[in-house]
């Protein structure tokens, strides 16, 4: 006789919906060197990024940066948060509370982005994460799993929203 699997979306997990991480101010400002390395690596050959004369003739009236560059740039860490032993950051900033579950397999299901404006060179950027939604689904094997939507909003120093990213994670 089959038994319905126990729900993994506990009241404790449901209570996390809407929970926010700390507001994080990104290290440094939107700068030439980060932009140069980013567009080389992407690659994105738009001269609006590096040709000031051309950029002045566009509707932006100034140089811009790639649409979501800010989402990578905001993750830069100051030297004191970098481990010289491990070669990676020691401190995770702006994290959301851990999901209290025994489901230990974590998958990145996808992303959604929405862009409103580009930061300008010299702008500083802040970001904040929140649990936008957490739902339970049932897999083909009859076992329930969690679908977690974490939304990150990025602002400039004028408190204007630059873009939003909603990432979907699956815990099963």
């Amino acid at each position: 006789m089959s038994r319905q699997a126990e729900s993994v979306l506990t009241p404790e997990i449901k209570a996390l919906i809407g929970e926010k991480g700390e507001m994080v101010e990104g290290w440094g400002v939107v700068d030439e060197e980060y932009l140069r390395r980013f567009v080389q690596a992407l690659p994105d050959w738009d001269p609006t990024y590096w040709d000031a004369e051309f950029a002045r003739k566009t509707r932006f009236k100034a140089r811009t940066v790639p649409p979501v560059m800010v989402t990578y740039m905001a993750g830069r860490r100051p030297l004191e948060e970098w481990s010289p032993v491990e070669g990676r950051p020691e401190v995770e900033r702006g994290s959301l509370p851990r999901i209290p579950t025994k489901l230990d397999r974590h998958l990145h299901g996808g992303d959604a982005v929405e862009v409103f404006q580009y930061p300008k060179l010299g702008d500083s950027v802040c970001y904040q994460r929140r649990y936008a939604d957490i739902q339970e689904r049932v897999g083909g094997d009859g076992k329930p799993f969690l679908v977690i939507i974490a939304e990150t909003t990025y602002w400039n120093q004028k408190n204007e929203v630059l873009c939003k990213v909603r990432s979907t994670y699956i815990n099963r």
Partner: peptide
């Protein structure tokens, strides 16, 4: 990187709409 897609897709659609259009939003599965 999974997040590499997040840079590629907006830049590509920004290019198509350039100079007077706007890449507004996109979503995708990994």
């Amino acid at each position: 990187h999974g997040t590499w897609r997040m840079a590629i897709i907006p830049s590509w659609l920004k290019d198509w709409t350039f100079p007077g259009g706007w890449f507004w939003k996109a979503d995708w599965q990994v």
